[in-house]
């Protein structure tokens, strides 16, 4: 049942991405409306599919490589829709929706079967820790997209080659603000995810810290974002530097999210 919904979600996300990209090139307000409707419907179906899977599996569906990317995509779309309705930055959708689509596609490449949950994961910490971590990652995805947009827009203005993107992308200030806020909130969520994670680790594995690959990578990204945040607040890093940092940071996040699970092994590896 949940997998049927999931297929519908995938169709909606792909169609939404297509419309958002079309909007980027055509700039017709009607297209942006259609794109928003498609993406919002996709999000609604996605929410339903997660709820259904939750009941079918009996646990929060974020435990394997079929569930995790899809859940991250859900969080990203959710965060984006919130921002779009609140601040009306539609062009962001053209950059966010492809990320969500790719993640959803990635999910579909893995087995959709619901397996027995590893005993270690049977804990109320699972939803708390993982939701915090995924929300943080979603917000870093936002900073990543804003960073890409910033670099494009900055290049247009600096090189004086005012191309078609100039009018379509928001102002540098706005993109930098997105970078700033999402960085602050994302960092907070990441920190909380790590704290709850280590408390849970104390219960599950017997130690707060066990040099697990995912722990190490998370710590690295944490340090990276901490450095950027420090630079922003105390040194006045902003604009281009902050945008590049946000892009690199998100790539590190993606690696600790996917790469660690597929390439490295450690305590966080629950399915193979």
């Amino acid at each position: 049942m949940n997998t049927l919904f999931f297929k519908i979600v995938l169709v909606f996300y792909l169609a939404g991405t297509f419309s958002y990209l079309l909007y980027l090139f055509k700039q017709k307000p009607r297209i942006s409306k259609v794109a928003t409707i498609i993406l919002t419907s996709g999000f609604v179906f996605h929410t339903i599919s997660l709820i259904v899977r939750y009941f079918e599996a009996g646990y929060t569906p974020i435990t394997n490589l079929y569930e995790a990317p899809s859940f991250l995509a859900w969080a990203i779309v959710g965060v984006y829709l919130f921002i779009q309705f609140k601040y009306r930055i539609t062009s962001l959708g053209s950059f966010i929706s492809p990320v969500a689509s790719i993640l959803t596609l990635l999910s579909s490449a893995f087995s959709e079967e619901i397996g027995p949950l590893s005993p270690v994961l049977r804990s109320f910490w699972l939803p708390i820790h993982v939701i915090l971590a995924f929300l943080g990652d979603a917000i870093f995805a936002l900073a990543f997209c804003a960073g890409v947009m910033y670099l494009i827009q900055e290049h247009q203005i600096k090189s004086k080659k005012i191309g078609s993107f100039y009018h379509r992308l928001p102002s540098l200030k706005l993109l930098d603000d997105i970078n700033h806020y999402s960085l602050t909130i994302g960092f907070l969520l990441l920190t909380m995810a790590m704290v709850t994670g280590s408390i849970w680790a104390r219960h599950a594995w017997g130690a707060f810290w066990s040099w697990d690959a995912k722990q190490v990578w998370s710590l690295l990204t944490w340090v990276f974002y901490a450095a950027l945040l420090h630079g922003r607040i105390n040194i006045g890093w902003r604009g281009r530097v902050a945008a590049i940092f946000a892009i690199l940071g998100f790539l590190a996040v993606m690696f600790s999210f996917l790469g660690v699970n597929t390439l490295l092994s450690g305590l966080h590896t629950y399915d193979r």
Binding site: I157, L172, K173
Partner: peptide, 9 residues
């Protein structure tokens, strides 16, 4: 217009 693209407001 350029100023607005840089400073927003």
């Amino acid at each position: 217009e350029l100023a607005k693209k840089i400073f927003d407001t």
